[in-house]
């Protein structure tokens, strides 16, 4: 008998290099994405320190000027430094993006797990409710809700999260239905594990990858959805500003020399969305011990 001489059949997998953090760190795009998100968030939330000018510092005589050494991203129609304005607006966009993503993922995961694990009857009820949310056109609901409830960003977050959770709930339910058929769930039941234990120890860790991707997708969609709303005139109102309403205010400048007013907030959204989705991919891989370099 030679039980120990049988090295595991996976080469190049050193005993070190384990664990969530190590796997995440090996994911170069995710690390770059994380760095970008952190720098961006720092600059936005500490805009009062970082920004070159004060917020809403108008120079009406100056008007819209293209990028220069003094104003790196130029100035807007009111002569405000555009970089400063983008940083301040980023506070709201990032806050909305992150809180919607986290909120809808948490709600969606909890309901998805219940729907998938609790059995037929409860599962059916939860899924019919989800369907109800899915068939309602989101923009119309948002517009109506915002008209009726006021346009504070808290309301926007709640309404966006109210739309976002349904997709995640469906995906999570599907995963749970597949996971609960796995033999390791049966093995835990035979060992006498409680349902809570099975959910916490076996289902959630195996769902973490799906949830991570869902968070990143949701950050992106809610920033974009908020922009769309602002663009349509239902989003935050001045003096509050977000990348979305900066876009909407600059919408008339397409193809004019002042086009940069459109491009820079758009670029800010694009960079954030890309960076966040890299982080999401990295998290998904980091949650899965089977992923190798």
């Amino acid at each position: 008998m030679n039980p120990t001489g049988t090295a595991a059949p996976v080469p190049g997998n050193k005993p070190s290099g384990r664990g969530f953090l190590r796997r995440f760190r090996r994911h170069r795009f995710a690390m770059a994405g994380l760095a970008i998100v952190l720098v961006l968030a720092f600059c936005c939330y500490f805009a009062n320190i970082v920004a070159p000018f004060a917020q809403n510092d108008q120079h009406l005589l100056l008007g819209a000027t293209p990028p220069s050494w003094r104003h790196l991203l130029g100035t807007d129609q009111l002569g405000r430094d555009y970089l400063t304005e983008i940083l301040y607006a980023g506070r709201l966009s990032l806050t909305i993006g992150l809180s919607v993503a986290v909120l809808s993922t948490v709600v969606g995961t909890v309901l998805g797990v219940i729907a998938g694990y609790a059995g037929r009857w409860i599962g059916e009820v939860v899924m019919r409710i989800t369907d109800l949310f899915l068939v309602v056109p989101p923009l119309a609901v948002l517009a109506v809700a915002l008209q009726g409830l006021g346009r504070s960003y808290l309301i926007i977050v709640l309404v966006l999260a109210g739309i976002g959770w349904t997709v995640i709930a469906r995906v999570v339910r599907g995963e749970v239905l597949a996971l609960r058929e796995r033999a390791y769930v049966d093995a835990a039941l035979v060992l006498g594990a409680s349902h809570l234990r099975i959910v916490l120890r076996h289902l959630l860790p195996n769902l973490a990858g799906v949830a991570a991707v869902s968070v990143s997708v949701n950050v992106a969609t809610s920033i974009i959805l908020e922009s769309t709303l602002s663009f349509l005139g239902f989003g935050v109102r001045p003096p509050q500003s977000s990348w979305g309403n900066m876009l909407s205010q600059a919408s008339g400048y397409v193809g004019t020399p002042q086009g940069y007013l459109l491009y820079f907030p758009g670029l800010a959204i694009l960079i954030t969305v890309l960076a966040v989705s890299f982080v999401g991919d990295g998290l998904r891989d980091a949650f899965d011990p089977r992923r190798k370099q």
Partner: peptide, 23 residues
Amino acid sequence: LRAARRQLQMVFQDPFTTLDPTM
């Protein structure tokens, strides 16, 4: 029932799904 669970155990067919991949 918990005591009974200790008495009675099971070994499953598929070696690829019998162990939780995240543990």
